[in-house]
Structures are given as structure tokens and as C-alpha cells.
Design a protein around this nucleic acid. Structure first.
Length: 418
RNA sequence: GUGGUCGUAGCUCAAUGGUAGAGCUCCAGAUUGUGGUUCUGGUUGUUGCGGGUUCGAGUCCCGUCGGCCACCCCA
């Protein structure tokens, strides 16, 4: 039996890498004053059908449940967030800074960087329309990637503004029901032949290409770059009005993060969705909001392809997985005595391991080495003394078993402060 | 969903249509209680699965499942 296509098993090394990513996500989000929340994995299909646009519904992992409800495994978190905010708006001071780490799903043929399941960090700020909010959120995205050891040479945030384009459409008297479609064409203009884009744009082709040709000047986007410059983060961003993003609910600033080499899919993306909460509350509550999401799959690929980030991850994981003490049972008669002390050491919070069955001493030391233990405690003929070996220096000493937990504590306090 | 390509031991890969192998990993040893290196020995396969052609198929053909790549799309 294999896992379903697009779903992963997380063997210990994979799980360690996943937890490493989660830990940095959580750490930096909290640094920015975000609090953690979560929602259900399964939602009514209608939540996405109405709010995210038709394209997302084609790729929903959805089915009919035993109560004959149409349900979908969540493809993204923003509609859930909007629903939750609409229902609990009065319970929290504004602006809300919320983050969430969870699993998301899509029903689509898998490829590199795109599975049917992945984990995402979502960070959202709700209840504040000022541009300072957009800057804060983009800064958070940058700092999260910096926490993995990436620099401005590894990734870039391309920022854009949907209003930049909707103002043009309005000035050209384009009917609003064509806006989504035209924004998609602009979004794809980078990847498609120019002739095809011109054909799709019709009489808008000339103004659009004129704007793209001169790089697209936007006062709002320049203010964002200035705001990031103040924080020393402006090397991480490029203004690029071609970024529009696929989701229908974005209303203002949008941005996507890419690797500088341009080899991978987008690492993260987000933007402002000032109308979504109002839509989901049927007009009862109106609140500006914006957010972004970062997935574990592409991020993991970039970590593995960037030596600095990969080494940092390996070192961190190795250090976290080390045990403190390995117990060598040299004489089986001492096993009971050893177990009594193992319990004491574990009660004090040390990571302690020992052989479950009788093993040769040499093999036990090998295991201590493999597990990354700092100390080995040998229980044998020396009893009631215990032989303590510093595995780094290979120095040994004898200590009476009654004083052993304190000696171990002293050893680790000294090494910790050294 | 469409097209291309690949599928051999836990991993990386060999094997002109003629008895399925190597390296690494793993396990056990190398004069009774000490980590690395080295040495010796050992385990592991319905060659993804199912049909077909052939005296004989890992190899050729068809189907199917899975991976990868491109398209589509991208939360």
C-alpha cells in the first residue's frame, strides 16, 4: 500500500525538517505580535465557490459527506478567517494580527513543488486600512525568510497593486464584470507570448503595454518601498505591476515571493482583501484586511538548494535531537540500580536513553555516540560508584551514585554557560 | 484533465532476449568493559502490477498503477 498520490509520509527526518520550518514561522510571527489561531480542515464547498473564484473550485478536494452535505478540504484559510472574523468581530481589539499553521488540500495532478496536500503559514492583519499595515505584513514575510538564513540574494518580494490596474480599467470605462478576466490576462502576460496577450486585451493592449514598458509607476508602491527602506529591508523588494494573483477577492496591494534564481514556484503570496469580510457577513460587518500565505513545499526546496539555509537547518535539527545522557549497563546485575537513576535524571528534565536489552559495552558506547549524547554513565563493577565519561573529551571519573544527579546537573550547567 | 518519459534490494544504480548483481545502509563477529577507521561474515527482490509475443522476458508489445517533466492552473 502506498500513500495516495500527492500525499506524504513524514519519516523522522522529514518530520524534523517540518518542525524546523514551523518553529521559525511561529517564532517570527510572534516577534511581530501575531497570535495563533486555527479553523476546521473541512468546510462547506460554498465557502469557496462564492468567494475564491471559479478556478479554485475546479481544484477543490471535495465530496459529499454522509449527511449529504457538499464539503471540501480547505484549499486556503482566508475564507475561513473572514467567516470567523465576521462572527466574532466584537470580541477582539482592532487591528487583529493573527497567524495560523495548518494543512491545506487541492485535487490536482501533482508535480514538483505542488502536491495535493501541504502545510501553510497564514498571517493576516484585520481592521486597519492604512498603508503602514501593508508594509508591516511585507516586512514580516521578509523577516520570516531571513530567519531561515536567506538573504536578498536568495529571494525577492515582488509587490504590486490591483488598484493600479482597476483605475485604468475604470478610466477606460471597462465593465466591472470583465475586470477579473482582464487582471488574469495581465497576470499571465509574463508567461505568455505577447501576441496572445494583445489579442486577449483588445483595445486595452496599447495602454497596458505602454505601462509595462515604463515599469509601472505607482505612488502607493513607492511608499511601501520607502517604508521598507526605513527598516533596512528595501533590498528584498521589487515593484512589479505584472503581479496580480489568481484569487478573485484581492482588492489592493498584492505581492509574491520568488527565489532569485527563478527556478521554483512562488514561495509565498498575499495581498489586501478589503471586501471579503463584508461579503461573507452579507454586509453586516465591513473591515479592511490583508494577509499572506507561505507553503512548506517550495520553501523546503529552496532551503535544500541554498547551502547556508540547508546547513543551518541541519545544525539546528542535530542539536535539538541530541540526547544528554546515555546509560551504559556494563553488568546486568546493575540494571535495576541504573534504572532507578535514569528515572531521577529524567525527572530533572534530562534526555536519557539506555539499552533495553543486554548489549556489549562497545556497542553501547557506539549507540551513545550515534545519539549525540554528551555524557555516558557506566554501571558495572565500580558500583556503588558510577563511571562518568565526557564523550567529547573522553575523560572519565568515578562518582558515588548518591551524588550523581547533582554532578550531572553541574556538568550541564557548566557546559551551558561555557 | 492532455502529452512525453521512467519504474530492478531500505537507498543510489548495473545486467548485447539466455541462471538478477555492485556500492552504501542495516545486522553479527574480530581473546570477557569503551566511541573513529579497517577487516570478516550475513539478511534483503513475485525486476510496480496484470496480460501477450518467445524455447526462454528485468529487457519486446498492450493495459494498469505510481514517479518525474511539459501543458493547464496556481491558494
Amino acid at each position: 500500500m502506498q500513500p495516495l498520490p500527492g500525499f506524504r509520509d513524514f519519516l523522522p527526518d522529514d518530520c524534523a525538517a517540518r518542525n524546523y520550518i514551523f518553529a521559525r514561522w511561529r517564532d517570527v510571527a510572534r516577534r511581530y505580535g501575531f497570535v495563533e489561531w486555527d479553523g476546521p480542515l473541512l468546510e462547506p464547498t460554498d465557502l469557496y465557490r462564492k468567494k475564491s473564484g471559479a478556478e479554485i473550485v475546479d481544484q477543490l478536494f471535495n465530496f459529499i459527506d454522509k449527511g449529504e452535505r457538499e464539503v471540501a478540504l480547505r484549499p486556503e484559510l482566508t475564507p475561513t478567517l473572514a467567516r470567523v472574523i465576521a462572527a466574532h468581530e466584537r470580541e477582539f481589539k482592532k487591528p487583529l494580527k493573527w497567524f495560523s499553521i495548518g494543512q491545506f488540500f487541492r485535487y490536482e495532478k501533482q508535480q514538483r513543488g505542488r502536491l495535493r496536500e501541504h502545510f501553510q503559514l497564514n498571517c493576516d492583519i484585520v481592521g486597519e486600512a492604512a498603508l503602514a499595515t501593508d508594509i508591516e505584513l511585507i516586512a514580516l514575510g521578509i523577516d520570516i525568510l531571513r530567519a531561515f538564513g536567506f538573504t536578498e540574494k536568495d529571494f525577492v518580494v515582488r509587490i504590486s497593486d490591483r488598484e493600479f490596474w482597476t483605475e485604468l480599467l475604470r478610466s477606460k470605462n471597462v465593465s466591472t464584470d470583465r475586470w477579473d478576466e482582464l487582471l488574469q490576462v495581465i497576470d499571465k502576460s509574463e508567461r505568455e507570448p505577447r501576441a496572445k496577450t494583445i489579442e486577449k486585451l483588445g483595445n486595452l493592449a496599447d495602454p497596458v503595454f505602454a505601462i509595462l514598458g515604463e515599469g509601472g509607476k505607482s505612488e502607493k508602491l513607492e511608499q511601501i518601498v520607502d517604508g521598507l527602506h526605513t527598516r533596512g529591508l528595501s533590498d528584498y523588494v521589487d515593484v512589479d505591476v505584472r503581479i496580480v494573483r489568481g484569487l478573485a477577492y484581492y482588492t489592493g496591494v498584492v505581492f509574491e515571493v520568488f527565489d532569485r534564481a527563478g527556478k521554483l514556484r512562488a514561495i509565498a503570496g498575499g495581498g489586501r482583501y478589503d471586501n471579503l469580510i463584508e461579503q461573507l457577513s452579507d454586509g453586516a460587518i465591513s473591515m479592511p484586511a490583508l494577509g499572506f500565505a507561505m507553503g512548506d513545499v517550495v520553501l523546503g526546496e529552496l532551503i535544500n538548494e541554498t547551502p547556508r539555509a540547508r546547513d543551518a537547518m541541519k545544525e539546528t535539527i542535530a542539536a535539538e535531537h541530541k540526547i544528554d545522557v546515555y546509560i551504559v549497563i556494563a553488568k546486568e546485575q546493575r540494571r535495576a540500580d541504573a534504572l532507578a537513576q535514569i528515572q531521577q535524571l529524567r525527572d530533572r528534565g534530562y534526555r536519557v536513553n539506555y539499552p533495553l536489552t543486554a548489549e556489549k559495552v562497545g556497542k553501547q558506547f557506539q549507540t551513545a555516540e550515534d545519539l549525540g549524547a554528551s555524557l555516558a554513565l557506566l554501571y558495572g563493577d565500580e558500583w556503588p560508584q558510577v563511571k562518568v565519561k565526557n564523550l567529547a573529551t573522553r575523560k572519565e571519573s568515578l562518582i558515588a551514585h548518591q551524588g550523581l544527579p547533582d554532578s550531572v546537573a553541574k556538568f550541564f550547567n557548566v557546559t551551558a554557560s561555557a
